[in-house]
């Protein structure tokens, strides 16, 4: 029976002190993390490892005994992903625990090479596993972080544009089911009021998924616009989206949909009593002129 679990539990304070000393001499991202934070993270992690080691289980870290350690590593990874650390920098934080543990193992086994080798082997496996958990958690939280950033960026970049007299367009790019969607939709209604518009085109070419929540947001906006005498046209409804909407059972009867923004614009012009005419210029060739039909 290995003495390693007992040793870690008994000497975790010394190991931690040794670890901190090592980190203070090694290259450290002092620009990204404070000494206090490093200190508290190492304490939390060391306590969690000690508590995991008390179970005697060092090879399988999936069990409840190591839950605290997994959670701690997850939390550390999340905060480091936000702080801008790289994967290897984050994993190195955990891997740098090896040396202090080896030191402790050596102190414990001064005269038994076989036991020494066995404990070093076991502890290196343990730390590798912990580092792997960290790297996975780090990747996951960074993906999540990036996805959220993209999402926010995307919905922010959708201002309402005035296409023509009385015609507004809201091109939406990105997901349409976050809390921000309502804000975006309200900004359209507000713009209808500000510009006294009669037609609002909501272009969903850049929306990857239209599910019932998205449809609900759209329908609510259309109803509200209609209340104040403005028609909405949904453009950018790709065939696969149209088909999916039908299968979902969403009733879009009474909602004007167009495949392309240009079709929607042509219809909007027509609705607001404006026409597009082609005129032949003397030397400039053909150009398109919009004129108001009185």
């Amino acid at each position: 029976m290995s003495k390693l679990p007992e040793m870690i539990n008994k000497h975790h304070e010394e190991i931690r002190a040794d670890w901190l000393k090592q980190m203070s001499t090694a290259v450290r991202r002092a620009d990204l993390i404070s000494n206090e934070e490093l200190e508290s993270q190492s304490r939390e992690l060391m306590d969690a490892i000690a508590s995991g080691a008390r179970s005697g289980e060092l090879t399988n870290l999936d069990g409840p005994a190591w839950g605290q350690a997994r959670d701690t590593l997850g939390a550390i990874s999340t905060s480091r992903a936000k702080q801008g650390f790289s994967t290897s920098e984050t994993a190195t934080f955990v891997l740098s625990l090896k040396q202090p543990i080896f030191n402790a193992v050596r102190r414990e086994n001064p005269s038994d090479p076989a036991a020494l080798f066995d404990d070093i082997w076991k502890s290196t496996q343990l730390i590798d596993k912990l580092a792997l958990i960290t790297a996975d958690a780090f990747q996951a939280s960074r993906e999540k972080f990036i996805a959220r950033q993209q999402e926010e960026l995307m919905e922010l970049s959708t201002p309402v544009v005035k296409l023509w007299d009385g015609i507004l367009a809201l091109p939406i790019i990105g997901t349409l089911d976050s809390a921000r969607t309502q804000v975006v939709m309200e900004s359209l209604l507000q713009a209808v009021v500000q510009t006294n518009s009669r037609v609002a085109i909501i272009d969903i070419t850049g929306v990857p998924t239209v599910d019932t929540l998205v449809a609900q947001h759209l329908l609510k906006t259309i109803t509200a616009a209609r209340l104040m005498g403005a028609d909405c046209i949904i453009s950018g409804v790709r065939p696969q989206i149209a088909q999916t909407i039908v299968h979902l059972g969403i009733d879009l009867a009474g909602v004007i949909t167009k495949a392309k923004l240009s079709d929607a614009f042509a219809l909007a012009l027509q609705r607001t009593g404006q026409v597009v005419t082609k005129v032949n210029g003397d030397n400039a060739g053909k150009r398109t002129l919009l004129r108001r039909e009185e």
Partner: peptide, 10 residues
């Protein structure tokens, strides 16, 4: 609520 909100916009 919708009518109320729209009125505020006006």
């Amino acid at each position: 609520d919708t009518e109320k909100k729209l009125c505020q916009f006006f």
